[in-house]
Simulated assay, not measured.
Amino acid sequence: MGYVYLNGGFICSDQATISVFDQGFLYGDGIFESFRSVNGRLYQFDQHYRRLLQSARALNYPLTFSQQDLEEILLELQRLNELTHGYFRITITRGRGEIGFQHHMDSNLTCLIMAREFSGFGAEHYEQGIRLRVAATRRNAPEAINPQIKAISNLNSLLGKLEARAAGAFEVIMLNNKKHICEGASSNIFWSKGQWVFTPDVSTGLLEGVTRATIMRLCEQKLNLRVVTGEFKLQDLKFADEVFITSTSLEVMPVVKVDDFTINQGTVGPIAKSLRNALRQEMAAAKQN
């Protein structure tokens, strides 16, 4: 049992309730952001807040709290839950409404913020690498669902996760409707060849991860690697020296197998290790936003 923030107050998590008429529950009409704190300091929250605003504007949500307002709530929630390295999720929905799409869209928003201690993943995953499955499920076309909205109605990714579980894989690679590599169900993908690092372009329909942007910067600033974005086929991975995936929770996770194809003779390469070390150093040194 811990504390959550719900619609203006801090309450015990087992006492938190949301209406059965909440539009997030009925229609997936909601957005979210997940991020971390390190040694009690919020990490890159300014980027996550900007993306939250981006999602809210796309759905015409009238957000009334500022970045400072949210930071104060997050830090208090962190204190109440006695967190050192926190993992937070902000969920905002259109709030209580009616059944059917013909009702008015102006409701009081539901805002739920949860926080727990960040536990991460076992060291063996980073030391031995993981396996990816190429999903049969295609990523939603950007013309159908704007990928820049981080929506709670994420059935597309869930289908990918179910494929990974059925195959005994850690994560999936999702292709877009043009059969170009897009992203994982909940991660971004990179691969290297020599001093070049490749990652799909936003035009493929991926969500621009905050960690993705950080890794691209660290590649060039810290490791003297050239980052290239574009539209790539699965065949490109077979020529890679290394493959790795990134996210807020994964950080930099090395990949040693894609379906039945082995990457780098099944061993974790130096770039993934160096990037994770560089990321963790930056996280530890980061100041409060």
Rank of each mutant, 00 (worst) to 15 (best):
A123S: 15
A136W: 04
G160T: 00
G120D: 12
N154L: 13
L155K: 02
F121D: 10
E163P: 07
G129F: 04
Y126T: 03
L155D: 05
L132F: 04
T110Q: 03
A123F: 06
R165S: 13
L109M: 09
Y126A: 06
H125L: 15
I152A: 05
I152V: 15
R138Y: 09
R133D: 03
A151G: 10
F121P: 11
G120T: 11
N154W: 05
H125G: 03
M174V: 00
G122K: 13
S153E: 08
K150V: 08
N146M: 09
F121V: 11
N140G: 08
E171C: 09
E171L: 07
G129V: 04
A164Q: 08
I145H: 06
N154V: 00
M174E: 01
T110S: 14
V172Y: 00
Y126I: 03
T110R: 04
A115C: 14
P147L: 07
A167Y: 07
A136C: 11
S119M: 13
S119H: 12
E124R: 13
L155E: 08
H125M: 13
E163I: 05
L109E: 05
N156K: 02
I130K: 01
A144T: 14
D106F: 12
S107P: 01
P147T: 07
I173P: 01
L132A: 04
A151C: 12
C111G: 01
G168M: 06
R131I: 02
Q148H: 13
I130L: 09
A135M: 07
